[in-house]
Amino acid sequence: MDLLQISNLYVNFTTKAGVVRASDGVNLEIKQGESLCLVGESGCGKTIVALGIMRLLPQNAQISGKIWFKGKELLSLGKEEMRRIRGREIAMIFEQPATCLDPVFTVGDQIAEAMRVHERCSGKESKEKAIDLMEMVEIPSPQKRFKQYPHEFSGGMQQRAMIAIALSYNPSLLIADEPMTFLDVTIQAQIMELLKDLVSKFRTSLLLITHDLGVAAEMCDGVAVMYAGEIVEKGRVSEVFKYPKHPYTKALLGAISNDGLKPIKGSVPELTSLPSGCKFHPRCPLVRDVCREARPEMKNGVRCHLWEKS
């Protein structure tokens, strides 16, 4: 059975500019111990799916669909039940570690705080556990670092601290929302290694959100390509990246090929006025008449008219 199963997740925002369809019928499954990568350009709704799972969407969001996690339907849980799942069962790492740490408390204090959220834990005990966690995420001299404030940490160290907080309860699912985007390339590699090690060590399932295909290929078993609020292709990383089916996936992979940069022409459509038919058709090099009219269905791991026939 899947650890997490999202079916028909719709997230709409009602704004002055109209209804924003940030997630338009997303289906995803993550198995126990599997790591899945959600890739796509900026603004295609990746983060919204993650926040939807956590039920931390902004107040003007309307969410519908089903999110099954360990036999529970998250969207129908009460607020208090959901709160107990957050942090303990599903943890999340955010894009900018610097803003996620409260500047007025020491880093160690905040890691220890995570330990006290769900269980009673004495100050001393939580401090010891926090130092263990800091060792686990390879923060050097944790005793000394425990007493330092977030601004005394480098970006990479801050992200390590965030990972320590996220793993404090050994959650079944870790959602990492672009955890490497704000770091230097060398630090990115370190954090990636660390995450990979920890995830396999604790058999934590990982939902990694990124637009870096290299990271995705390196870290994940499965991949789901998202475009304008829907999944256009999914499958094993090895298959999808080697034999991409959807023109969008091809274009994404082609954009960083060895022949130099090949940007995808055009940009992600405004989520308030999505094109009819296949959402990718205005940018698709293989566009046909049917693409402009009918919305393709997800078949054999790809949402494209060209593949429906063959």
Partner: peptide, 17 residues
């Protein structure tokens, strides 16, 4: 609206806390 408030929610802290 700051990041650390969202992060605190993400680890399951209660509103009161």
């Amino acid at each position: 609206e700051r990041g650390f408030v969202e992060a605190a929610r993400a680890i399951g802290s209660s509103n009161f806390y």
